[in-house]
Design a protein around this nucleic acid. Structure first.
Lengths: 340, 340
DNA sequence: CTGAAAGCGCTTACAG
DNA sequence: CTGAAAGCGCTTACAG
């Protein structure tokens, strides 16, 4: 491998000093227009590129962001939550448009975080992405905060947790899908999804759900809730429990699409038709939800805007500008599973 | 923001020289065990982390890999090919296990590549991921090669194209699905997917398809082929053309699952049942394929192994070790769409 | 507008 | 085993 050219080589070829080369290549207005263009031309011809390690070291900023993706406990290979994949795409594009590079790192929720990108000056800040257990989460967020790390996280606004959050209104999403099912004539309900302190997103969806029921005068004897993590199997099992208990709710609200997929499968197995016998609603609008039989009514979060907001707010934070939490509205996607 | 500690600060606190700190933190055997442990403890207590810009600049290597993802022409937001998302997950994990960081960048296939990660010393090498038009591709690969950039690409082995490739045997995949459909009794076939020089993956699948037909004595009058890019709409339209032409093949082989989804939709619209009237096979095993009605028989590529191979071979390349192209076997996933 | 010089924070020959 | 010194390739005050 041949040695790479340095700014001194370009300076030599252009007959100017190395300082002038550096200025010319950063489009400094200090440098004469002709000189600048000549230097830039020579640099292009030599395929010279500024060394980022040297440049970052000197400038003390990296123009790089690190994305920490927290996975669900399922440690097996590929199947990452499609929702986060969509976010990843959006974040990548948003970074590119701001001339930032993006480091991606999968993290183990429970183990130690590998979050030292800013400490090592490899990144100027972090984006945290993943649903999770806030009780574990919290100490680590506090630690990041104390170290002066710049970060934003996707998720629910919560005054108790440090850092800036960008999220989608899970409470409103729970309202939307529940009101829609009420409008479709449902009077008795079941909610599937762990609704507890350790699952704030699901909790908010559940809260929106029961509050809407209450407003419609359907509480409390009609509302049952069954725990489930966001997997097809958990949705299946929870539905099995509902049926075992002898209940036949008019509608089942699921805290995620994967849960809904499992629920529908279980209902089918017991000869119950969706939507004819029972209405079902999901959450996330994952690609699969448009292909299930029946297709799934669900709540969509705007991942494109979410990615842009995460990046732009992190950059504001890095530049010491004022930043506040942001809550995006949810959107109901009506499909077959909720309409007789 | 408080100033970060440097190795000099640690040296001062430990009562040793800065050189010794550096050695201790890199676990150099040159340094006395007790000194090393003391230095490491102090560094931990001070939350000191080695500055990567300085370290990389000095070492002239970054322990970082850049992943360039080439997108299909569809410039709209989110929906990235799920297959590549799965690869991304696998590559990320493989990098982490080798103590490499991963930069992710989406590229526009047709525009200029933003591929200067190695030129700027931000990365030690590149992974190229994306299906695409090899005629455009080729010049850029040649350019990378000439610049001495280290890279591996996902895709078909092709002696005409520069660089190391890791791929899955598309020819064999085409054989597998076709032979399976023949075994199910199909005698007349249609293939949907652009089979040309500009789409080498689809081309190889088609070649495996027709060669298998030939071996079974079913060529040539029974084989028709219709162009389609890898989208649901293109699959729908191509199927429409088949039906318009009056043909009713026993089986349709689709070059991708998305094409197959569109094909099934079109067949349904015309009152043709799958698998009862026509058998359908896909390619990729995207998550959706397990949820369509009927579920889709398809060909799976081992993304976990693929990601590991891409990373490990790139690292070999970076270390100037010998590297050769690698072709992984394909695997048939039999579901409902191919079995009466 | 330009150049000479300092210095970002490390790693690693070199000398002991 | 340890330390003093050089130097990785830049950017940016400083001086002119």
């Amino acid at each position: 491998m041949k040695d790479k050219a340095t700014s001194f080589d370009i300076a030599h070829m252009a007959g100017v000093s190395q300082s002038t080369v550096s200025r010319a290549l950063s489009n400094s207005p200090l440098v004469n227009k002709e000189t600048r263009e000549r230097v830039q031309r020579i640099a292009r011809e030599m395929n010279y590129k500024v060394d980022k390690n040297a440049s970052n070291l000197r400038k003390q900023r990296s123009s790089t962001i690190a994305l920490l993706l927290f996975e669900d406990p399922s440690p097996d290979d590929s199947l990452i939550n499609p929702f986060f994949m969509s976010m990843l795409g959006s974040i990548t594009r948003a970074c590119a448009s701001m001339n930032y590079d993006l480091l991606v790192s999968f993290q183990n929720m429970n183990g130690d975080w590998h979050a030292e990108y800013e400490d090592t000056n490899k990144a100027d800040g972090l984006i945290l992405l993943g649903y999770g257990d806030y009780l574990d989460y919290r100490d680590k967020l506090t630690q990041l905060q104390e170290q002066g790390t710049h970060f934003v996280r996707w998720g629910a606004h919560d005054a108790e947790y440090p850092g800036i959050s960008i999220g989608c209104d899970n409470y409103q999403g729970g309202q939307l899908v529940t009101q829609h099912l009420i409008d479709q004539g449902a009077k008795t309900f079941a909610f599937i999804g762990t609704a507890g302190q350790r699952a704030p997103e699901f909790m908010a969806r559940f809260q929106g759900h029961i509050d809407t029921l209450a407003s419609a005068g359907l509480l409390p004897d009609t509302a049952v809730q069954y725990n489930a993590v966001s997997t097809e199997d958990a949705g299946f099992d929870a539905t099995q429990k509902i049926l075992d208990s002898g209940q036949r709710p008019d509608a089942i609200v699921c805290a995620s699409d994967l849960i809904a997929v499992g629920a529908i499968k279980c209902l089918k197995k017991h000869g119950l038709g969706v939507p004819n016998d029972i209405l079902v609603g999901g959450y996330d609008n994952i690609p699969i939800s448009a292909f299930t039989t029946p297709t799934l009514t669900t709540v969509q979060q705007n991942t494109k805007k979410a990615g842009e907001l995460l990046v732009s707010n992190l950059l504001r934070l890095i530049n010491n500008e004022k930043v506040t939490d942001y809550l995006m509205p949810a959107e109901l996607i009506v499909r077959q599973s909720s309409q007789k």
